[in-house]
């Protein structure tokens, strides 16, 4: 509500950015540089809160977790809870093995592409789960998303390391 946006998973990125800039235009500490100290402090706090809201909503996973929290649902695997979905654990293991087996840049890129496709699919499913008001399913999907995003990030780093090694060798 800090950015006065509708509470929806299908949030348009351009709309979010526009709302973010508008809010920062109003409250950024740069606008208050010559104001008295209490106003400066207030601006600092507002701008901090706006940045936090933007960071949460910008990431699809952050947005989903936020919506679930608003609906009173927690995502398993978060603070202190354990993950007990064997299918998910198995999938995560398979992804991890695929990445470990990928020895050259082309193979890593393939894993990245597949991971991205899986992420796109999960995001689509999340959208329909939220549309249907099925928060239990949405929570499970967010957990899968967490795993795959982490793996995609590792694949990205791995690709960069391989590219660097190649540059150094040539």
């Amino acid at each position: 509500m800090r950015l006065a946006l509708p509470r929806s998973f299908a949030l348009d990125g351009a709309l979010l950015e526009k709302a973010y800039f508008a809010a920062q235009r109003q409250f950024h500490p740069d606008r208050f540089a010559t104001r008295p100290a209490p106003e400066r402090l207030e601006a600092l706090q507002q701008a901090t809160a706006i940045n936090e809201a933007y960071e949460v909503l910008k990431s699809l996973r952050g947005r989903a977790e936020h919506l679930l929290a608003l609906a009173g649902h927690t995502v398993p695997g978060g603070n202190g809870t354990t993950v007990s979905d064997p299918a998910l654990l198995m999938e995560a293991l398979e992804w991890r093995e695929a990445l470990a087996d990928a020895e050259d840049a082309a193979a890593v890129d393939l894993v990245r592409t597949e991971a991205r496709e899986r992420i796109d699919g999960l995001v689509k499913d999340l959208g329909s789960a939220f549309d249907a008001g099925d928060h239990r399913r949405a929570a499970a999907l967010v957990l899968s998303l967490t795993y795959i995003e982490k793996l995609a990030d590792e694949a990205r780093r791995r690709a960069a390391t391989l590219a660097q090694a190649k540059r150094a060798a040539s």
Binding site: R25, Q26, F27, H28, R31, F32, T34, R35, E39, A43
Partner: peptide, 12 residues
């Protein structure tokens, strides 16, 4: 003025 856009009246 928008908040923050006006310099103080006793601006230096």
């Amino acid at each position: 003025h928008e908040p923050g856009e006006t310099p103080l009246p006793h601006s230096q």
